[in-house]
Simulated scan of single mutants.
Amino acid sequence: MKAGISLSLSLALSCSAVAQDKNLSLPPVFTLFELVIKQDKNIAFERLADKNMTASVREEPGTLAMYSTSKKAAPSTVYLFEIYADSDAYQKHIASSPYKDFLRNASDVLDLSQKRRIDVIPQFLADKKITQNDDMINNFVIVDVKPECERAFRHIVLPEMAQSIQREEDVLAMYAAIDKAHPTRWYFYEIYASEDAYQAHRLTPHFKEYIEQTADMTTDKQAIAIKPEKIMNKGGLIYKAE
């Protein structure tokens, strides 16, 4: 998996050390957390997360994206998606004052007994600079692939994602990762500018070909309806694991 990794970054913040230095450590770090907010603590959590995320993305060159989303069917269930340029950038983040402040207050708003980190290996990460608005659509999909089809699935889905981010203006982010403990389980997190943009994406030839070609390659597909709460990134990330 690690033998053929390519990474390029073109970040919008010209003052960022990451934007100036293309010789980055590999691979990037992609973290995925599932959290449960205590009863009547949603607003308090949103304020705490907003403070940490805003400071981290703005002030830490290696913190490339932080997304907080809630489950539509159960708003107290939160999914956090975070991307760091490399392991050093991630270590700097968890040593930072904003993150330490978040940890100090987390027990007041979160049921830590239900905190779950899903260890993943990034396969494709690509995004554009995002300005959050009410029209934005977020998708979170978990796909289990037949073991004998994993290689073929990879060679179909990764080019499809690349075409989507390159050809479709309103496809804002396409991220894919595999479960470290279960390598045939894929996690997809996608951001679209609007519902119209998402529906237009579903009508593209490359998406239709992906659906047709992988129809018999999976054993399970779970689409988790989520709502974006706090969305921040630097933009311009392109990463593909070969």
Rank of each mutant, 00 (worst) to 15 (best):
N133V: 01
F207T: 11
Q163I: 04
L110R: 06
F207P: 10
I231P: 11
N139I: 00
E60I: 03
A74C: 14
E190G: 03
M53S: 06
L112H: 11
V157C: 09
G236E: 06
R185F: 02
A200Q: 10
A55L: 02
D179C: 02
V109R: 09
A89L: 05
Q163H: 15
P27H: 14
L64W: 07
L24F: 13
S164Q: 07
A181K: 07
Q20T: 08
M161H: 07
A73M: 06
A225C: 04
R151T: 03
A55S: 11
A173G: 14
Y90G: 09
T218D: 01
S97W: 10
A106M: 01
N42W: 02
N233S: 12
C149V: 00
F33W: 13
D111I: 05
L13C: 15
Y210F: 15
I211D: 14
H155V: 06
L203D: 15
T131C: 11
A12R: 15
K230P: 00
K2H: 11
Y239G: 01
D21C: 01
K92Q: 09
I94T: 14
M217S: 11
M174C: 04
D111F: 08
I156T: 15
N138E: 05
N52T: 02
L11P: 04
V145I: 13
A193C: 03
Q199G: 09
D101V: 00
S25M: 05
E195I: 14
D170F: 08
K180Q: 09
D111L: 08
K72Q: 14
I178P: 02
F102H: 10
A177W: 07
F33C: 02
T219W: 01
Q91C: 06
S16V: 02
V36S: 13
E59R: 05
I211P: 10
K234L: 13
E82W: 00
L48Q: 02
K129C: 07
A65V: 00
P205V: 14
D144Q: 09
A152C: 04
T219R: 04
M161T: 09
E34W: 08
P28S: 12
H155W: 12
R185M: 01
I94F: 09
A200M: 03
F102T: 02
Q166P: 03
N52R: 01
S96M: 03
A44I: 04
L11H: 06
D216Y: 14
E148C: 07
A177S: 08
Y210G: 09
E150N: 14
H155C: 12
T214L: 03
A49L: 00
D50C: 09
M161W: 03
S113W: 11
H93C: 00
M174I: 00
F30K: 10
K71E: 08
N52F: 02
S8V: 05
T214R: 06
L125S: 00
D50L: 07
Q91E: 14
D86H: 08
A162Y: 03
K71H: 10
V18M: 14
A215L: 11
I156H: 12
E82D: 07
K51L: 12
A95Y: 07
E168Y: 03
E242L: 10
